[in-house]
Design a protein around this nucleic acid. Structure first.
Length: 438
RNA sequence: GGAGAGGUGGCCGAGUGGUUGAAGGCGGCAGACUCGAAAUCUGUUGUGGGGGUAACUCCACCGGGGGUUCAAAUCCCUCCCUCUCCGCCA
C-alpha cells in the first residue's frame, strides 16, 4: 500500500511510476474521496468536541443538583447528526482504502524499463563449467520421462487421488525432495544466519492483504470452504505476517527467517502452460527466505538474499542466471525483483527457480509492521523482503535433467548425499508396481 | 462439542456510566546525589489522525465490530482470542 499522503501530494509522480509498469492509474475517484473524507472528519470532530463539552457540563450540573434537561434535549438531536457523519466517514474511508489496496507498488529507480519478460535484464550467470552450459553426449530427456523410468514420481496416480497438477513422489523421489528441503534449511540457518520457522499453512484474510495477495488476486488462491482461511501460496505470507501490527526495536533488525512450507496455487489462467511434469503444480514445496530490514539497508539486504539463494544452486552444481525484472514484469507488491533461473537442458532454456524481491514499505504499511529508530521518537515502517531459497520441485526437475546419465540413472549432487543415506545415484528399482500407462 | 473464567498503556494491575488517556507498581528516559556505579529522591514516559510557523490545541483509541445513553473502559448484542474442567482426538 502506498502512503496516502504521497498519493495526495505527489499524484503526478505516482502516476508516472505506475505508468512504468504499463498501467494507467485513474486517481480522480481516490482524490475526491480523500477530500470528502477529510471534510467529513473535520465536521465530525467539531460536533464531537461540542458534545464532549456539553456532556461534561451536564455532569457538573447534575452533580450540583441543578436541572440539565434543556441541555440533554439539545444534545439528543446532535447525537443523530454525529452517528450519521460517523457512518458516512467510515464508508468514505473504506472506499478510499479499497482503492489504495488495489494500487501496485512503485518500481525502484534501479529497475530497468520494459513491458514484459522480454525486456528483463540479465545480471550474471554461473555454471560449474565456468559459465559454459553443461554438454550432453546424448539427447537429454525431460524430467517426466526420467522420473517415470525411475518410478520416482507418479503423475497419473496423483491425478486419480486428487486431480491435474499434483504429484505423487515415491522412493528416492520422495527422499530427494526431503533431502533438498533439509539441505537448504541447513545451509540458510547454519551459514547464512537465518532462523528457521515452521508457520501455519493456512492464513486469514488480513495476512493475505498484508502481502498483497488480497484483495486483488483472490482467483490465484485456494480458500478453505468451512472457515475464513486460505491455503498459503508461499511461506512469504505467514512469515511476513509474524510481525503484523507490531513495533520492533531497531537493534533487532534485520530479522532473517527461513521457512519450509508447501505452497498452494490455483494457477488460474495458466491452462495449457507447463501441463507436463513438475514445473507448474497446484501444490509444491519451497524453502523461503524472509527479511525485515531498516529502510536504508533493504537494497543491500536484497543483494545478500539473492546471493544466499544462488548459493544453494552453486552447491548443487546447477547452472543458472540472475535477471532483473523490468518494470512491466514486476509483481504487484514488489519494488524490485531478481529472478534466478536454473538451466534445464531438456527444455533448452532457463526457468525461474527463485524470485527475490524488496517490497520496501509496501507490505509493512498494509500489515502495520514498524520499528522504532534508536534516537528517533517516531515509529516507522520497516522494509520487507523475501525470496525462494529455493523452489524444491523445480530443483528436483533441474537435478533430474542436468544429472541424468546415458543409462537412465541420475547422479545425486554430493551435498545431498548425506541426506540420502549416502546414495550416489538414483537407479531404477528392481521391484516396482507398474505405472498406470505402461 | 459441553460448562465456566478472562482480554485495560512496553509489562503487571485498579477502575460506583460523568474532568479517566485511564490509580498504583515495574520497566524506560532525563535530572539530583556519587570519582563512577548501585541504592535513593525528583521529573518524565502510549499510538494514530486533524489544525497551527510555533507554544499549543482538537478528535479517536481500554481485544474487533455494532448498539443503548446528553455522556461508555464501565450497560447490552455479536465476533475473535486466551485460560480451566469435561468429552473427543493425532
Amino acid at each position: 500500500m502506498l502512503d496516502l499522503k504521497l498519493v495526495r501530494e505527489h499524484t503526478e509522480q505516482v502516476r508516472a511510476a505506475i505508468r512504468r509498469r504499463g498501467a494507467e492509474l485513474d486517481l480522480r475517484e481516490f482524490l475526491a474521496l480523500d477530500e470528502k473524507r477529510r471534510s467529513t472528519q473535520q465536521e465530525l470532530e467539531a460536533l464531537r468536541r461540542k458534545r464532549n463539552e456539553v456532556s461534561e457540563e451536564i455532569g457538573r450540573l447534575k452533580k450540583a443538583g441543578k436541572p440539565a434537561e434543556d441541555k440533554v434535549a439539545e444534545m439528543r438531536a446532535e447525537g443523530d447528526a454525529i452517528t450519521a457523519l460517523e457512518n458516512a466517514g467510515r464508508e468514505t474511508e473504506e472506499a478510499q482504502r479499497n482503492i489504495l489496496l488495489m494500487i501496485p507498488n512503485l518500481p525502484h529507480a534501479s529497475v530497468p524499463d520494459g513491458k514484459d519478460e522480454a525486456d528483463n535484464v540479465e545480471i550474471r550467470r554461473w555454471s560449474p563449467q565456468g559459465g559454459e552450459l553443461p554438454k550432453f553426449s546424448f539427447e537429454p530427456k525431460p524430467h517426466w520421462d526420467i522420473a517415470a523410468y525411475l518410478d520416482i514420481i507418479d503423475f497419473d496416480r496423483a491425478a486419480k487421488i486428487t486431480g491435474a497438477r499434483f504429484a505423487l513422489y515415491k522412493g528416492m523421489g520422495a527422499r530427494l525432495e526431503r533431502a533438498l528441503i533439509n539441505f537448504m534449511l541447513d545451509l540458510h540457518t547454519t551459514e547464512h544466519g537465518y532462523l528457521e520457522v515452521l508457520p501455519p499453512f493456512m492464513v486469514n484474510r488480513d495476512s493475505m492483504i498484508t502481502t498483497g495477495n488480497l484483495p486483488k488476486f483472490e482467483e490465484d488462491l485456494f480458500k478453505v470452504e468451512n472457515g475464513a482461511y486460505y491455503l498459503i501460496p508461499t511461506a512469504e505470507v505467514p512469515v511476513t505476517n509474524i510481525f503484523r501490527d507490531e513495533v520492533l526495536p531497531e537493534e533487532s533488525l534485520p530479522v532473517l527467517y527461513t521457512a519450509y512450507t508447501p505452497c498452494f496455487r490455483r494457477e488460474a489462467g495458466s491452462y495449457g502452460k507447463d501441463t507436463r511434469g513438475l514445473i507448474r503444480q497446484h501444490q509444491f514445496n519451497k524453502v523461503e527466505l524472509v527479511k525485515f530490514a531498516k529502510p536504508e539497508d533493504s537494497y543491500d539486504e536484497l543483494e545478500k538474499l539473492t546471493r544466499n539463494a544462488e548459493e544453494a544452486l552453486r552447491r548443487l552444481g546447477l547452472a543458472y542466471r540472475v535477471i532483473a525484472l523490468c518494470a512491466g514484469d514486476l509483481g504487484f507488491s514488489a519494488a524490485k525483483t531478481y529472478d534466478i533461473e536454473v538451466w534445464l537442458p531438456a527444455q533448452n532454456k532457463y526457468r525461474e527457480i527463485s524470485s527475490c524481491s524488496n517490497f520496501e514499505d509496501f507490505q509493512a504499511r498494509r500489515g502495520n509492521i514498524r520499528y522504532k529508530p534508536k534516537g528517533g521518537k517516531k515509529t516507522e515502517f520497516l522494509h520487507t523482503l523475501n525470496g525462494s531459497g529455493l523452489a524444491v520441485g523445480r530443483a528436483v526437475v533441474a537435478i533430474l535433467e542436468n544429472f541424468q546419465q546415458p543409462d537412465g540413472s541420475v547422479v545425486i549432487p554430493e551435498v545431498l548425499r548425506p541426506y540420502m543415506g549416502g546414495a550416489e545415484r538414483i537407479v531404477r528399482r528392481a521391484s516396482r508396481v507398474e505405472s498406470l500407462k505402461s
